[in-house]
Design a protein around this nucleic acid. Structure first.
Length: 520
RNA sequence: GACUCCGUAGCUCAAUCGGCAGAGCAGGGGACUUUUAAUCCCAAGGUUUUGGGUUCGAUUCCCAACGGAGUCACCA
C-alpha cells in the first residue's frame, strides 16, 4: 500500500500514524527505566570503563598462577539470567564471546543486588567489575563486586535458550522467521552468533581478494556509479535524475567500459570491487544491487585470465576458511585442483545432446531445442538460445569449478573473435556449485570492429528491447586512442560468499537484502 | 509478472470434522547464596496479518489486499 501512495500521503502517515506504540513488554521496561532514573542511575551514561574483553579475561585467568587474582571490568550485553535469590548468575556477551557473572547480595550490597534483579532485562548493556574465578561446575566466571548500566534496552530481543550437548551449542526457539531476520538484521545479528560469523567470513574473503589483486600488481580504482549511459552487460538499469544538471542518469550495470578506458590511459592492471545495480527479478541468486569484482590486465588473453582465476579463488578459499576444499549444500567442492575446461559446444553436446553447429540459425535451433523438450523464447537470437541451453541443461550440473569457453559472438559484443571462427568469441564463464560465478573475455580493442559489434547488437535486439545498450561514443573515442590487448574478468562477490559460507541464498550473505516495503 | 504454500502472544510452535484460542521460552509476583535450557509455586499475556463473504457459530471454508517462502518467467 504505502509504496503506492503519493508523497503527500506518506508525509501525513509519517506525522500521524507511523509512530512507535510500546507493547506491554515495552511498557514494563519503560517503567523500569523510570525507576532507574528515580534511583539516580543514568541508563545511558557517556563514558565506560573496560579493562578486558570477555575472551581476554578468560585467557588471563587461565594463564594466571594458582591463587593470583585477575581483576577485570567487563562490558557486554545481558543475554541470560539465572536468579537464585541472594545470588544471581548471568551471562554477558561482547564481540569476543560470553562470560558468566556471579553476583551475590553480600558482595555488591542490597541495593545493587535488588536493582540487578528487578530493573535489568535481557538485552541491556552493562559493565561488571570483580575477579575472575572458576565455579564449582568448572566454568570460568566473573565474581562481580559491582555493576554499571551502560544502555537500557526497551524492546525485548528474541533471545533463545542454549544448551551445550557434546560440545555443540543447541538453541531452542531461535529467532528464525526469515522475513523478520532480514527486516530486523540487527536483532538477527544480536541473537544469532553464526549469522555474525557469516559476515566475518565474507569480510575475510573480500580482504583476501583485494590482497591477491594488490599482490599481483593491480591498481584498485573507483569509477562512476551514476552514469549518463549504461553498458558492459545486458540488463535493465535503474534510472535516476540529477536536479541541478537536469540530467537523467543510470545506476551502473557493470564497471567494464570505464575500467577499460583506464587501460587507454596507461594503467596496465586495474580492478574495482563495488556495487552493480540491475533492474531485474529477485531470486536466491539475484539481488537488485550486488557486489562485483572486475579486473582488466593488459597483454593478457582469456587463457591467462583462466589461470589467474584458478589461483585467485584458491587463495580466497584458503584465506577465508583455511582450506581449498569446501562444503556447499552437501557437495564437496575442490578449489585446489586445475579446473575443468569445456567449450560451450562440447558442454552442450555432452549435457543436452545437441550440437548447435548443426543448426546455424535461430529458427532451426529453436525447433531443435523444442524437440528435446527445452525452452526457446520467441525471437531470441541464436546465441541467446545457446546460452539458454547452457543455463537449462549444463549449469545445474557444474558443481566442481568449471570454465565454459568460446561463447556465441552475437551475444558477446565486447570480446574478440576466436581466430578462424566467425561464430565464436574468446569468452568464458565459470561455474561452481551449479551457479554462474563470473564472466571474462579476451577484450575487443579494435574500435572499428567494436562499432560494428555495437551496431549489430542494435539489430540483434529489437529497437524496443530494454536490454539493448545505447552506443557509448565516448568509449569508442577512448578506444581510437589505442587500447592495449587485454583480458578482462567479472565475478559476483555475493555468490562467492554463498559458496564459502555454505549459504542457501544470497540473502544470507547480504546484511540488508532488499525486501518489499511493508506497512508496520 | 504467473502458479503453489504460508501468516496465531515479544520469540518458537499447537488447536481433531467449522464449536469457549493452548503450550514452552521471554516478561510479572513469590521461594532458593555455585547455577548454566537452573528448578519450584502463583498470576497475567490474543483485533488469530488486513478487509469483505458464507454460517446459529470462522484460526479453520470462500473472495480480495498486504507481506513472506518456493517454483517458473526474466536476468548476453
Amino acid at each position: 500500500m504505502k509504496r503506492m501512495m503519493p508523497c503527500a500521503t506518506r508525509a501525513f502517515l509519517w506525522e500521524n500514524d507511523m509512530s512507535w506504540q510500546p507493547n506491554p513488554l515495552e511498557e514494563q521496561r519503560l517503567e523500569k527505566l523510570a525507576r532507574l532514573r528515580e534511583a539516580g542511575i543514568e541508563p545511558y551514561p557517556l563514558r565506560v570503563e573496560r579493562s578486558h574483553t570477555t575472551a581476554e579475561a578468560i585467557a588471563a585467568f587461565e594463564a594466571a598462577a594458582e591463587g593470583d587474582t585477575v581483576a577485570v571490568t567487563l562490558c557486554g550485553r545481558l543475554l541470560s539470567v539465572r536468579d537464585m535469590g541472594k545470588s544471581v548468575f548471568a551471562d554477558i556477551a561482547d564481540e569476543s564471546g560470553r562470560v558468566q557473572l556471579f553476583l551475590r547480595r553480600d558482595d555488591v550490597g542490597e541495593e545493587a543486588h535488588a536493582h540487578f534483579r528487578k530493573l535489568l532485562d535481557l538485552g541491556d548493556f552493562i559493565s561488571a567489575s570483580g575477579e575472575m574465578f572458576r565455579t564449582r561446575m568448572g566454568e570460568v566466571s566473573l565474581h562481580a563486586r559491582g555493576w554499571t548500566l551502560l544502555s537500557k534496552a526497551i524492546s525485548p530481543l528474541p533471545v533463545a535458550k542454549e544448551q551445550e550437548v557434546d560440545g555443540q551449542v543447541v538453541r531452542y526457539s531461535a529467532f528464525a522467521d526469515l522475513e523478520e531476520r532480514y527486516r530486523q538484521r540487527y536483532a538477527d545479528l544480536a541473537v544469532n552468533p553464526e549469522v555474525r560469523d557469516i559476515f566475518r567470513a565474507r569480510a575475510r574473503m573480500v580482504s583476501a581478494l583485494r590482497r591477491f589483486m594488490d599482490d599481483n600488481g593491480f591498481l584498485e580504482v573507483e569509477t562512476p556509479i551514476l552514469q549518463p549511459l549504461y553498458g558492459g552487460a545486458a540488463a535493465r538499469p535503474f534510472t535516476t535524475y540529477h536536479n541541478q544538471l537536469k540530467q537523467e542518469l543510470y545506476l551502473r550495470i557493470s564497471f567494464e567500459l570505464y575500467l577499460k578506458r583506464l587501460l587507454v590511459g596507461g594503467y596496465e592492471r586495474v580492478y574495482e570491487i563495488g556495487r552493480d545495480f540491475r533492474n531485474e527479478g529477485v531470486s536466491f541468486k539475484h539481488n537488485p544491487e550486488f557486489t562485483q569484482l572486475e579486473f582488466y590486465a593488459a597483454y593478457w588473453d582469456y587463457r591467462d585470465v583462466m589461470d589467474f582465476t584458478e589461483r585467485m579463488l584458491a587463495a580466497a578459499a584458503r584465506e577465508t576458511l583455511g582450506t581449498t576444499t569446501i562444503t556447499f549444500q552437501g557437495h564437496t567442492i575442490d578449489f585446489g585442483a586445475a579446473w575443468q575446461r569445456l567449450t560451450m559446444r562440447d558442454a552442450i553436446r555432452q549435457f543436452a545432446e545437441i550440437d548447435y553447429m548443426d543448426y546455424p540459425d535461430a529458427t532451426s535451433l529453436a525447433k531443435a531445442i523444442k524437440d528435446i523438450g527445452g525452452e526457446a523464447p520467441p525471437n531470441a537470437p541464436w546465441g541467446k538460445l545457446i546460452d539458454g541451453l547452457l543455463g537449462d541443461f549444463v549449469e545445474p550440473r557444474l558443481i566442481q569449478p568449471t570454465f565454459i569457453l568460446d561463447y556465441p559472438r552475437d551475444i558477446s559484443p565486447l570480446a574478440k573473435s576466436v581466430p578462424g571462427d566467425p561464430l565464436h568469441v574468446e569468452r568464458f564463464e565459470f561455474f561452481i556449485g551449479g551457479m554462474e560465478m563470473g564472466n571474462a573475455f579476451t577484450e575487443l580493442n579494435d574500435p572499428q570492429e567494436q562499432r560494428r559489434r555495437f551496431e549489430a547488437l542494435q539489430e540483434t535486439f529489437g529497437k524496443d528491447d530494454e536490454e539493448r545498450n545505447p552506443i557509448d561514443e565516448d568509449y569508442l573515442r577512448a578506444m581510437r586512442y589505442g587500447m592495449p590487448p587485454n583480458g578482462g574478468f567479472g565475478m559476483g562477490i555475493d555468490r562467492l560468499a554463498m559458496l564459502l559460507t555454505d549459504s542457501r541464498t544470497l540473502r544470507e550473505v547480504l546484511l540488508f537484502p532488499h525486501l518489499r516495503e511493508r506497512d508496520e
